[in-house]
Design a binder for these strands. Structure first.
Lengths: 112, 112
DNA sequence: GTGAAATACCTTGACAGGCGAGGTACTATA
DNA sequence: TATAGTACCTCGCCTGTCAAGGTATTTCAC
């Protein structure tokens, strides 16, 4: 992994919620999607992922249910809730703001 | 502060080094510049700042010296070292990559 | 059938960075 | 003489990440 976890820290929830906005999914799959979307450059560790699920469910941003298992073990699916959607949009906004600010702070002469 | 610390976590060093790339400076001033550049939306807390200075100095990325004080108390100035420059460029690259990846991970239908 | 590999989930404990709270000290100015 | 601004620093808590370890199921080659 070329991008360290601390660089993404604070955005994990946003990533998970944004993925669930596309439809229900389960941990293992979400992890794969993240890995694929980032061309393998970023990977959420399992411990981090499940910690985040727990946190988000406690916050009421996602809801889980046991779903039909495919080729492997049983799967716990997660669905985004209305409050989760709201949180997701807020986090997407925060990400845009973070980018904007960071770009200004990192700007150096002869380097955009 | 509208942007929570965890969103910036892992980028603090990059911000400080990028500022020092513009010339020597001291803690209090760097903090003000950051606040100004971000239009007051982000502010490095003092504890965070001085912790970072210590860390960066131990890493050899910055060097400090006591400088002429202005209207207030004496100032400890920081200068970026060659290894600091190197680290800074690396971190700037990482930031670009983080942005790229995050944008992909947060992409949702009907939302760029 | 048996073992390996892939699928899938979960917990514990350590660690690191951010920061609230608190402290020191000097200067200018009202 | 007190207050506000400048300027630095430390302690200890909190939170999120992650290495390591564990469980259970299914598929497929042998």
């Amino acid at each position: 992994m070329s991008i360290a976890g601390d660089l993404i820290r604070g955005h994990t929830d946003a990533i998970i919620l944004a993925r669930l906005l596309q439809g229900d999914s389960y941990g293992y799959e979400i992890n794969k999607v993240i890995s694929t979307l980032s061309s393998g450059r970023f990977e959420l560790k399992e411990a981090t992922l499940y910690t985040a699920f727990k946190r988000l469910e406690e916050l009421g941003h996602i809801a889980s249910y046991w779903g039909g298992s495919g080729p492997g073990a049983r799967r716990r699916y997660y669905a985004i809730t209305p409050s989760g959607r709201e949180a997701c949009y807020r986090l997407l906004g925060e990400w845009r703001e973070t980018k904007e600010i960071m770009d200004k702070l990192l700007e150096t002469e002869g380097n955009a």
